[in-house]
Nucleic acid binder design. Sequence first.
DNA 1: GATTTAATTTAGAATTATTATAAACTAGAA
DNA 2: TTCTAGTTTATAATAATTCTAAATTAAATC
Lengths: 138, 138
Amino acid sequence: MVKKLSILNKLRSSNLRPTKQRVEIAKFLFEREKTFHFTIESLAKSMAKKTSKEFALATIYNTVEAFKKAGHLSEVHLKGKNNRTYFDTNISNHHHFYDNETSELIDISENQIKFEKIPNAPNGKKIANVEVIINLKD
Amino acid sequence: MVKKLSILNKLRSSNLRPTKQRVEIAKFLFEREKTFHFTIESLAKSMAKKTSKEFALATIYNTVEAFKKAGHLSEVHLKGKNNRTYFDTNISNHHHFYDNETSELIDISENQIKFEKIPNAPNGKKIANVEVIINLKD
DNA sequence: GATTTAATTTAGAATTATTATAAACTAGAA
DNA sequence: TTCTAGTTTATAATAATTCTAAATTAAATC
Ligand SMILES: [Mn+2]
Ligand SMILES: [Mn+2]
Ligand SMILES: [Zn+2]
Ligand SMILES: [Zn+2]
């Protein structure tokens, strides 16, 4: 009940009508203890299993895009072995371990990395953010 | 003459037959003062202009992949606005500024960034390399 | 230099991720 | 309830990349 309400608030406050599909997806993404990473494909499968009916792929794409625009999701700008886009329910600034073998992403919190030296942005530009990807091997 | 030879050596030593197409591409990529970044599309256009005939796209893909496997090129694991893969003739460990507006990549040499603190790899894994992408804004 | 063979190139088809379209449906205002 | 704009859906379109099978070519062998 409490959880359901906070999801409705999250959607309403983002100007997203709480449709059945959005509520189901939001519950799956946000009603959990820990944040996680997913792809459109994995989310589509999860929703199909959870609700035992297929959501249109376009709905998955649209909803994820809408949540991203509303700031409820972030996109990991990384290009893995498989050419899929990763999304993240962790919307804070943070970094990642990436295991190219397993295509697994692991969070590194912002305070786990400190720079001793970092270059200035080129003339006329500013630094928007810094993303560190630590590629793993066996 | 000297340049042509080093290209032939580069190909032969990588077990790549120096075909007309590979030599043309290698000359374009490696016979220059500074390293640079490119996409398959930009390379295909460059080769078409340079030689005034179209290379099959599959040849461009195959050749870039072969050069990558042979260690003559690296791939930048970044996912830009446009969903294109970037390749880099700079094969040393280094970092990048990325301007999402212009889709431009700028090199940051390894020694321009120093870490004061960095996490250990998860159990059973090692760090293969660390990639820093500094996203730019206006 | 001609012959032979395996590697390579090529045009085009196939695949995959993503986006667009337009008709059917629905949340929420009136 | 009625109305309407927003949403979902199936499907088509697009775009990057990979596959295929036939034609070509590098280079080893005669
Ligand atoms: Mn790749
Ligand atoms: Mn995106
Ligand atoms: Zn994350
Ligand atoms: Zn570079």
